[in-house]
Design a protein around this nucleic acid. Structure first.
Lengths: 337, 337
DNA sequence: AGGACCAATGTAACCGGTTACATTCGCCGT
DNA sequence: ACGGCGAATGTAACCGGTTACATTGGTCCT
């Protein structure tokens, strides 16, 4: 077990003061070249590494940001984290992960962050609907906060137009002649709020109604945003006396579940059932799912860029809306009834 | 911008010493109940939160572990991180993410960790083949290291028997009468080493040879462990004069790419082409891919448990091997030639 | 020769906690 | 009445860096 070698060890070994060591090793000016060289040699020989906590305690800069996501196991989130991580690392920032996997943890996010607030430069919230008054204490402590997805009062938000995306997906199905269109997604409580699922559902409903198609509440199901949830819901839908001819899933995971249910039930896609997803999950292309593409990597990059700019004292003044795109593949076709 | 409230502020406000505040707030004994109550009230009123860096600087415990993965965007890795994160959070540990997305970063992993070594309790390496002499300095500094996947000398390893898994997958195809069996995976340099892809490839080769089927090197392709790579390789394979009747992909992503290539090329699965994957990716069931199931969550949990035990002074004495399982679904069928 | 100036370096305070050790004080036994 | 004891609390050193300010010593100018 190697004993700790501190800056004082290096100083005494090199025959200089700790201040000189600190300056020499960080490349600050006003250190004689010969001295610097000697200090560096000693530091290398002793395998000295500065203690990051001590450094952070004495400086204002922390070089750490928190990334908070609801889940990390889902494609969408892990890819956002990937792109954030890449930029963060390149800029010399560490990232600290917070997974708010249930509602409770989502509520308590601020409590988690608060202790770190003084020592973390910023937080990127991904799909986390937090109250403005929850974020306020963070902002007041000088933290930079960026949101991907939900609009949070007073926080720069990176988003796509989920409402229009859902509308376009639905109208694509309507344009193919479908009218019995199911939707997979649904808020647990049945209510529509400003969260992403809520906004997408509203787009779905408005598209139907403005095309003169009443919303059949029995076709609006909760697919839990998972493959299994989409599967279960679709199995149930297909077993009903008058099954839908199309399904709009609010995520590609649920669309894949629907696809699986159709295959196992002997229902042909797209002849008997059209499926549209949302996200353009990497597996969507392999399966051939028609979907709304989100620029996932770009969302993360933009958020991190906004963060870096803010940390450099050039905070963004407004939100950024990136473009979505309908990708027409093989799970959608003309209505067949 | 809220000014920092420190333990001294609380102390003077409550009319006690900093030591008493420290003890009171941490629930240590020998603090009078009345005093404790008063201190807590003052702390709450001032919204005092202890600075984690200062705390860590003065104590030995860090409550932080590093999780290092090659990629975070892939299902396998993000799920491992998920299960590690859950246990870590429950045990009061923070996790710090390191993404070694290219070989250079993999080599430099130790350089990244070293500065943190004093202040991090441990590291979980996921699929990171590092030299024993790279890990040695970490161990010497008292860090706990656990490896998921590759065996690292002197480090507790959690693994599945990748060799036998690959053999079983291959033999499943052979049992169905296939003999022109392609493999997707392949090491970049063409060499087989002790990494996971290398071990799986060896299982594939041995299965063929021990069943009297010579390995056709033209059927061993590099699919880059991605959907796109599996797609490209399969498109190419199917275009050859004597295409394979089966494909064993070393990951489900590549299997999905093969599936897509078959569908787009009008090649029926499994009638014309059987596909076996590896991992049991969440999308494998939706597509219906026959695959070797890895207990992903269990791998992460076991690793974190080993870590926690080691941190509690009860290090594991040996490695742990978890079971894999062949899941027979709809992408495999009898050879048709 | 003597003073001005500046580069190089050292000293010590500070960041905000924890904790070993010292101190105070009320209560007990004899 | 007094020494002993232990609970409650205070004092100050310490963790390992950074940095404001002081000090040193050499070069250059008049």
């Amino acid at each position: 077990m190697i004993e700790n070698v501190t800056i004082r060890d290096v100083a005494s070994e090199a025959g200089v003061s700790v201040a000189t060591v600190s300056r020499a090793l960080r490349g600050l000016p006003s250190v004689a070249p010969a001295t610097r060289e000697r200090v560096e040699a000693v530091a290398a020989r002793l395998a000295y590494v500065p203690d990051p906590y001590a450094r952070r305690l004495s400086t204002a800069k922390n070089h750490t940001i928190i990334v908070a996501v609801p889940y990390i196991g889902q494609w969408y989130y892990s890819n956002i984290v990937t792109s954030i991580e890449a930029l963060a690392t390149a800029a010399g920032y560490d990232i600290r992960l917070y997974v708010a996997s249930d509602d409770l943890q989502r509520k308590h996010f601020v409590e988690y962050v608060l202790p770190h607030a003084k020592r973390v430069d910023g937080a990127v919230l991904v799909d986390l609907s937090v109250d403005p008054d929850q974020v306020a204490p963070l902002l007041m402590r000088g933290m930079n906060v960026i949101s991907i997805g939900p609009n949070v009062e007073g926080v720069v938000t990176i988003e796509i137009d989920n409402y229009s995306g859902a509308r376009e997906a639905t109208e694509h199905l309507i344009g193919l002649g479908h009218s019995r269109i199911a939707m997979l997604g649904g808020m647990p409580g049945g209510r529509i709020d400003m969260s992403i699922p809520g906004v997408r559902e509203q787009g779905f409903r408005d598209a139907l109604e403005q095309n003169g198609i009443p919303v059949d509440e029995d076709l609006v199901r909760n697919g839990n945003f998972s493959i299994a949830g989409g599967y279960d819901a679709t199995v149930d839908l297909l077993a009903s006396p008058l099954p839908p001819t199309a399904v709009f899933a609010l995520s590609d995971e649920m669309a894949a579940g629907a696809f699986q249910a159709a295959r196992e039930g002997g229902v042909r896609v797209p002849e008997d059932l059209s499926i549209v997803g949302f996200d353009d999950h990497e597996f969507a292309e392999a399966i051939g799912i028609t979907t709304i593409r989100q620029p996932v990597a770009a969302l993360g990059e933009a958020a991190m860029q906004a963060m870096l700019d803010a940390l450099d004292g050039r905070p963004w003044t407004g939100n950024l809306e990136l473009d979505y795109e309908l990708i027409d593949r093989f799970t959608t076709g003309p209505a067949n009834t």
